Amino acid sequence: MYFLNGDRTYIKPERVCGDLKDQLQSCLEQLEKINSGKRIFKLNFFVNTNSNSEYDILLNDVRDQLNDLVGSEILISFIAQSPLSCKVIVEAYYYDPEHWDYQMISEGKNGTALFSNGQTEILMGTVHANQNSNCRLNAEKAFDELVETFEEAQFPLNSIVRQWNYLEDILGFDDEEQRYQEFNNVRSDAYGNVFEQNGYPAATGIGMSHGGVLIEFVAAKSKEVLTQPVDNPEQISAHSYSEKVLVGDECNLKTTPKFERARYLRYRDKKMIFISGTASIIGEFTVGIGDAAKQTEVTIQNMQRLYSEQVLAALPDQAKNPKFGHARVYLKNRKDYAGVRKVVKQVFGDLPVVYILADICRDDLLVEIEGKVILE
């Protein structure tokens, strides 16, 4: 994480011709070398699984191996999304222990870590619910755990600045209730009105093949931290969508997705923008239907508007020299990989990018991209 005087790195298997077990072992071997020079505190495993039972078995096996390699004091997210260039990719986050004190305040599926530097505290973690096939019930369990985590850590819920929401079968239905819409309803209920004063978190809502509901979060509590929403002038805020674009006509309740297009964060001399999961939407409607390359172009333009001169000039701090830091690119269809990758490379060059196969929150959206911008 940039504001923790660290960053992230992507670990890919050195032997892409092996099976999943071989590729996973290759990543873990590299992890051991990386951790000797950097203090890793969080690992995201992007890997496809064929069933929820296989998901649980693989997750437990990875946890056991990591205990031997790096010890138990590390956050782990196991995300059932298939990388497009191999069978598994590991996203490793690290920090600088000379600037930050670090402690795990809970471990396991609902792991939480607390970073502190003087009067500044950063809370990061994961809540995971996979006890039920019903999305609403898993979402309720996950948000109950989230609220409880923040109460125990004595953090206000509205201190969340960045959130990732991974949903099994995001576009599916439980009877007549569309699963992503049910998640949004539960999120709206859990949030209540606590975010009304200073806006919602930047967030990504994306599908995964198995695993129920998994939520990751970053929260900041400090008088030295300034954070505020960043809007794209060409898009309607997701939390202000009309019912025209909310899916599931038969749903009994339809609340809007509670997130901002992006969120600015300043801590001392560090300034950055978290860019939410972004898609080919102008106003509130999908653009480039059926054309993944066109949707990628529009998506990148939407992202660039979030750190345009017009937007930066409206920030309370002087912010210049924006530098796009990394990207995750989610694709609905494997066949679109080459075309989407070509567009991304034309714009961002050799920027670190991972390409993930995942369902996206609208039937007609083929691509979603998230990232960060460093302001120097």
Rank of each mutant, 00 (worst) to 15 (best):
V311N: 07
N193M: 13
A153W: 11
Q154L: 08
E152G: 05
L24E: 06
D249T: 11
I374F: 14
I170D: 01
F78P: 02
E196M: 11
Q301G: 00
I57D: 13
D22F: 03
N333R: 15
G288S: 02
I282H: 03
V353F: 04
G283K: 14
M1A: 15
F217H: 11
R334C: 10
S209Y: 03
I289K: 10
E196Y: 11
A293V: 10
R15A: 13
D336P: 01
E91W: 03
I374M: 04
G37A: 00
T256E: 14
G211F: 01
P257R: 01
I11N: 01
C27T: 07
Q25V: 10
H239Q: 10
V245C: 09
I160R: 03
N321T: 14
A358P: 00
A129N: 01
G125C: 12
L24K: 01
V329A: 05
N252C: 10
T149G: 07
A92W: 00
D350T: 14
A190W: 05
K320C: 12
V194S: 14
V287N: 02
R266D: 06
L315Y: 05
I34C: 10
L312E: 02
V373K: 06
K109I: 05
Q178I: 12
S308H: 04
R162K: 05
Y2K: 10
P257M: 07
K323Q: 06
D169L: 08
A80V: 04
Q103D: 08
Y180F: 06
L146H: 00
I160S: 02
D101E: 12
V287R: 03
E151H: 08
N193E: 12
G205T: 15
G288I: 00
V367H: 00
P352D: 06
H326G: 05
S308C: 08
Y180L: 12
Q304L: 14
P156D: 14
A153Y: 01
I206K: 01
G192D: 12
T149R: 11
F217E: 08
N333C: 03
L253S: 05
A327E: 02
S240L: 14
N52H: 12
D56I: 11
V311E: 09
A219C: 10
E148F: 09
C17A: 10
T120H: 04
L31I: 14
G283N: 14
K345H: 09
G288Q: 05
L366N: 01
G172A: 08
F173L: 06
N185A: 06
C86V: 08
Y2R: 07
E73G: 05
D231Y: 15
L357D: 01
S53G: 03
Q197A: 15
L366I: 03
D231C: 08
Y241D: 07
G125N: 07
H239N: 15
S72P: 13
K345N: 13
Y355Q: 03
N158F: 10
L114V: 07
K33C: 00
R136Y: 07
Y102A: 11
Q301W: 01
F183N: 04
